[in-house]
Design a protein around this nucleic acid. Structure first.
Lengths: 335, 335
DNA sequence: TTGTAAGCGTTATCAC
DNA sequence: GTGATAACGCTTACAA
């Protein structure tokens, strides 16, 4: 016998398959006594229900989809492991499995989001790394399958969002630079189509406004979260605008590019140029000078995303935006 | 109608379900004409076979499992995205989906490898980041389900392995240090239970032997692939053994720890201490001094692992060890 | 070459 | 409370 089926359990327990199914799924219309006996038999036999057969008839699986964009080109892949770790830590209490659905221009998927979801009757999805203009993001919003977005705030009902308060975090970082006496603070922004890019830019402007400093559009450059582009744009900026004494970067990796540019131009850090990053990636404290940054707990983001999704799936939540705590990390780079 | 079934196609095409199934699965006993007609109808209707129903009867799914260890604590998670990207790029030509099976002491999975595989009738698995003493590694070897190991060489028949030639790569790196005149070269090794740790250590010894240098066990320390442990062990080593002028690290992250130790002790790099890393992670060229290292193409590793698995699953390969090219990257840290 | 019918292992419906 | 029976959507002997 390859593996036990519900029939085997039924035979052994001397009841019908129906009763076994009901007992194991905790239906109310089974006597406590029978239920206990059946459960014992099932455990003794090492019976495990076949999730595929179950999915077929229930038209819903216990699989959730982890949709992620830019697997290949995105520089912050180091974070992926943390996200996933959080997701699994959360799901370890449940019986969910996680299926992977990468969305990448490189990896041309034939399947649409809708098809992926319906093919496997996914219970829900978590979407991470998507940009505002991603096809899958639009599809997910229209789909009736529960989903939780990481790092995108969505007003749509029934959709969950998990993120830190990017705007407040950015405001804090830039305010710190202001407090250190900087008056010309540039901002190396990320990818324009990323939701967080807008939020962090807004926080940057907030801080300037609070300090009574004028916002200068020329001091904002977009480097698409790429080290090389940050290097290039920052170098160009620092060459033309020697009044700039501090830079707030929307990611640590871009901060690396700025550091490289500073080195290239012979600027000492933090004396000639103060720097603030974002993310607090694993090596942020090891570069020289150690990088001041905003710590995001990616594990917690993944954990809460999974938890929220689970609540939505089981009807215990309506979705909405959930904020995760962040921390401002002060190291030498910001002076 | 929620979604098309094979019946709808059969009705529309004026044939039986059986014939549709045969036509769509390219069975020989269907006339070319009927097959063409059926396929056209299916496409016109936007029909997609239900993989769950198919799996139930075929007792095999088109899902492969991506088993990975140490999701949380492992420092090299930055590499995960590259691996996955490669896997998906390879599978994009097929109809496989990827299910995630993290194995972590933190994330206590109730399921065994065998159960995971049989519950979903996985077509095969890719195992990455496992250690030699991992329970799942042992189980996978015993299982009859095809699997491919990344970074573990296995002699078992029917099992595939994909990796770079770690031993040769290490020998090359250390030989370079020898060529630069170093005579006392230490080795910061990784986790003792990782397969690559042994291979890299062997390459280190090879290089010493070729150069006629004595192997000194005291010059080998294990830092478990952790930055902090590398920092501590390297600092202790460098304090007691001031004759050491070069260090070969089994990972770039550990090399960061060594850099920190050198800074701590006031050693200039590469003049007082030359350094060689391993992996060529994204930021390896951005630290100061830029790190000499061994470039692993993690994307290619993932790609080839998936390709090999696909060949094994379809009976076109027996498994075996497949080596991926690597490159030695010389930067300032090695002098 | 095509179709009939019997499953795959569950859950849902509705009698008893 | 419990149990036949009919699905779920597909594949596959076996007939025709």
């Amino acid at each position: 016998m390859d593996h036990m089926t519900i029939r085997d359990v039924a035979n052994r327990a001397g009841v019908s398959v129906t009763t076994v199914s009901k007992a194991l799924n905790n239906y109310p219309d089974v006597s406590a006594e029978t239920r206990a006996r059946i459960k014992k038999v099932a455990i003794d036999m090492g019976y495990r229900p076949n999730p595929i057969a179950s999915s077929l008839v229930r038209r819903e699986s216990n699989i959730i989809g982890y949709v992620m964009s830019s697997l290949q080109s995105h520089p912050n892949t180091s974070i992926l492991g943390e996200y996933l770790s959080g997701v699994f830590t959360s799901f370890t209490k449940t019986d969910y499995e996680v299926m992977f659905l990468p969305v990448d221009t490189q990896i041309q998927r034939r399947k649409s989001y809708a098809r992926f979801v319906s093919d496997y009757h996914l219970a829900g999805t978590i979407l991470q790394g998507l940009r505002m203009d991603d096809r899958y993001f639009v599809e997910a919003k229209q789909s009736s399958t529960p989903c939780v977005l990481i790092d995108i705030a969505s007003e749509s009902p029934g959709i969950g969002s998990v993120m830190i308060d990017n705007r407040a975090a950015s405001r804090e970082a830039v305010s710190y630079l202001v407090k250190r006496g900087h008056r010309r603070i540039a901002h190396v922004a990320g990818l324009a189509t990323a939701w967080v890019t807008q939020a962090r830019l807004a926080g940057y402007r907030d801080a300037l406004e609070v300090a009574g400093l004028a916002f200068d559009p020329n001091l904002v450059v977009y480097a698409d979260f790429l080290e090389q582009r940050a290097f290039e744009t920052a170098r160009a900026l620092l060459r033309h605008r020697q009044d700039v004494t501090a830079i707030f970067c929307a990611s640590d990796l871009m901060a690396m590019g700025v550091m490289r540019a500073a080195r290239d131009l012979g600027l000492a850090m933090p004396d000639d140029l103060a720097l603030f990053g974002f993310d607090n990636v694993e090596w942020a404290g090891y570069v020289s000078p150690p990088l001041s940054t905003v710590d995001q707990d990616f594990h917690a983001l993944g954990y809460e995303a999974a938890r929220l999704l689970h609540r939505i799936v089981s009807g215990r939540s309506e979705g909405g935006v959930q904020l995760i705590p962040y921390r401002t990390i002060l190291r030498e780079s910001a002076g």
